[in-house]
């Protein structure tokens, strides 16, 4: 086991973890935006995502794919 680990970049665990965190943040932001849109139906107010939100939304590929559907 330990010999095999020598072939793995020491940072790979950190990279996988960061990819997961980035994905989760993207999904959360997607649902938050969805919630605001949902509220918008009742209040009649059109909620434009703030520039930061737009950035985060672009950050994760998953919500974008979902949005297309």
């Amino acid at each position: 086991m330990h010999l095999l680990l020598g072939y793995i970049d020491p940072g790979s665990g950190m990279i996988v973890l960061q990819l997961i965190v980035a994905g989760i943040i993207g999904v959360l932001v997607f649902f938050r935006n969805l919630w605001w849109k949902f509220l918008g139906i009742f209040t009649g107010r059109k909620t434009e995502p703030t520039p930061v939100d737009a950035d985060v939304k672009a950050a994760s590929p998953k919500p974008e794919e979902l949005a297309k559907k």
Partner: peptide, 28 residues
């Protein structure tokens, strides 16, 4: 990170494609 490193060790596929996927957003 230790758990994911063990998982990465068990994985056989090439991870480089994921790493090179462009994403200009740094908020995460």
């Amino acid at each position: 990170p230790a758990i994911f490193q063990r998982k990465a060790n068990a994985q056989t596929g090439d991870g480089r494609a994921t790493l090179e996927k462009p994403n200009k957003n740094s908020s995460a």
